[in-house]
Design a protein around this nucleic acid. Sequence first.
DNA 1: CTGCAAAATCGTAACGTTACGATAATTCAA
DNA 2: TTGAATTATCGTAACGTTACGATTTTGCAG
Lengths: 333, 333
Amino acid sequence: MKRATLKTLSSHLELSVSTVSRALKDGPEVKPETIARVKRAAAELGYVPDLRGVKLRTGQTFTIHAFLAAPKADEVGDAGSVALTQGMHRSLADTSYSLIQVPLSPGSDALAAVQRIDEAQLTDGMIMDLTRPQDPRARYLLERDVPFVSFGRTELYTPHAYFDIDNEDAAYQATALLIRRGHRRIALIDGELEYLFCRQRLAGYRRALAEAGLPFDEGLTSHADRDADRSAQTVQHMLAFDRPPTGYVCVNEVVTLGILHGLSTAGFQAGDGVDVVSREGTRLSSYLPWRVSTCYYPLSLAGERLASFLLRLLAGEDPAALQEVVKVEVIER
Amino acid sequence: MKRATLKTLSSHLELSVSTVSRALKDGPEVKPETIARVKRAAAELGYVPDLRGVKLRTGQTFTIHAFLAAPKADEVGDAGSVALTQGMHRSLADTSYSLIQVPLSPGSDALAAVQRIDEAQLTDGMIMDLTRPQDPRARYLLERDVPFVSFGRTELYTPHAYFDIDNEDAAYQATALLIRRGHRRIALIDGELEYLFCRQRLAGYRRALAEAGLPFDEGLTSHADRDADRSAQTVQHMLAFDRPPTGYVCVNEVVTLGILHGLSTAGFQAGDGVDVVSREGTRLSSYLPWRVSTCYYPLSLAGERLASFLLRLLAGEDPAALQEVVKVEVIER
DNA sequence: CTGCAAAATCGTAACGTTACGATAATTCAA
DNA sequence: TTGAATTATCGTAACGTTACGATTTTGCAG
C-alpha cells in the first residue's frame, strides 16, 4: 500500500494536481467549497506531504542544527544536555522541522562545523552555545544571512536572536549568599574568559565582593577548563594557600562535582564549614551527598525557548525582538 | 554564486547530465578517461551532490533516528547520553547520514513514536535502547522490514542486529566484589523487570549470591524507576530493616547518586562500612565524594558500535552477523 | 570499404512538490 | 444576447537526481 500523494488525491477528486496543492494551502483562488472537499479527501486518504518533494522544490531543508558543547571523550557530561534536547524537541514537536545535534568536544573547530553545514545547504537555521564576545560563528552567520539563535549574548552591534541566563546576577547571588553565611575567602571556579558568560560571572562575583567591602584576590579565581578533573586539581591547589577559601562559586554541575571530589580527597566532609554554590540546569545537586546551594534554571526551558525563537525567526520575525535574558532561581541549602 | 549541480558540470564538460552522473559513480559503461575528466572538474567546481535530489529520486532519506530513554522533565539525566551521542556521530561523520535523536521520557509511547517516523517515511534506519524480551518496537520494525539496531538484546526468534553489554556478568561481578569485601546483606537497586537487561542483572546477582552460599532475599531487591528520587526512597526504606543492607549494586549512575543521597540523609558518611557499586558509561563515580566501585563501559564506544552496525545493515549485511555483547570493566575503589 | 558487435554517450521520464502564466467557467452590466 | 470582467481550474516547467532504453561512436574482422 503506497502512501497518498497529490497525484493520488487529484485523480481521486478529478481535480488537477495544482488545484489540490493550492487548496491544501488555502489558496485564495480556490473555491471554498473545493477547499473543503479536498481537505476532507486528504484526511480520509491519510495524505501527508512528502517533505522530499517540498524540500527539492522550495529549497528549504526543514532541518535545524544545534551545535552544543560536549565534554572530552568519556568525561562526565553536562547532566543537563539531555534536558536541553528535550526542551528543543518540545518546541519542534508539532512542526515539520527535524533537529540535528552536533556535539562539539573541546578543541574541535566550531566555525568549521558551522561552515560545513551551511555550505552544503543542509540547514534552515542554527542554535549554538558557548558564545564569545566577538563570536566568529555569529559573525559568519550574520554575514551569510543564516538564521540562528545563540545560547548566550555576544558584544556584536548587529542585533541577533539570543536566549541567555543572567550570569552576572547568578554569580552575584551565589557570592552574596556565601558572604551572608560569613565566608570571607570565596573562590570562583569558572570557565575561560574568552567566553562572555564567564566574564559576566566574574563581574557579578566582583560586584558582590565590593559591596561587602571584601578585597578581590585573583588567586581565588580560576578560569580553566570547565571539567571535573581540572576543578579537583584547582581545589587541591587552593587548599594549600595560607588562607584557603571556605566558599566556592561553581560555574556548572560538572565543576561542582570536581570541587566536591577535590575537597573530599583533601579530607573534608559535608558540614566541615565549607560551602559550595553550584549553577545548574537539572536537580543534580539535590542528590549530592553534601549540602550544595545552587543557582537553578531548568535547561529544558532554555531549550524550549531557543527552538521557539528560531522558529519565529524562520517565520520572519525581527531578530532584535527575539532576545531574552532570564534570572536564575537561588536554591539555598 | 550558486552551487554546482550536475547540469553545471555537464555543460562545462560538454557531456550529458546522465553521463556525468554515471561517471561520478564509476559506472562501468563510462570510459575511464571520461571518469577521470569528470571527477577532476567536479573537484574543481566544488560539486557536492544535492541530497534533496537524491532523496527524492531514490526514496532514501539519509536520516537515522535514535530513540533514547530520557529522564522525566528536569530530572537528572544519564550523564552518559552525551557520550552516546558523540559515539554515534563519530561513526556517521564521514557519511551523508544525519542523526536525529528522539528523547523518550518515561511514560511516552515508544511504539507510537517509531510508527510515526516509519509511516511518514522519514528514516532509513533506527537505533533504540531499553529493549524488552518481546519488544513491540522490534517486532514492528522486523515486520515492516525497517533496518534497526537495538542497544540490548531481545528474546525474539527472528534475528536482528544488536549491541549489548553483558549485564548478567556485570551484576555478577558487582555482587561478587561486595561479597569479597565481606558484605552479607547486599541490595540490588535496579530497573523494572519488563526490561531484559534488568532480568539479566537479577540473574547475575542471584548467581553470585548462590555461589557464595548466601540466601536470596527478595526484600533486598528493588525494581522501580531508574531515577535518583526513587532510589533515595528505596534506601531509606531498606535502612529500616532489621538487618539493613551494607552493600548496594546499582543499575546506573543516576541510581547511584540517589543511593548515596539516601545514605547521607540517613546520616551515613563515606567510609562508614557501606559499599556501593555503580554501573557507568562515563567517569562520574570517580568524582563522587564517596568511594564507589563501578562496572564501566564507555558509552561513547557503545554509540559508535551501534551506529556502525546500522550503517553495515544499510549496506546490506546480514543482521545475524551484527550482534555483539561486551563485558564491563570492573573498577575497584 | 563494408558490416556488425561492442563500447560510449545521450535523451527521456520519473520521484513529489510548487509557481505561474494560460485557459475555462461563471457572473453581470449593457 | 453579447462581451468584458471576474472567478475558478488547469497545464507546464522546474528543483537535482538516477534508471533505463535508445542512439551514436568506435574498433575490428572479413
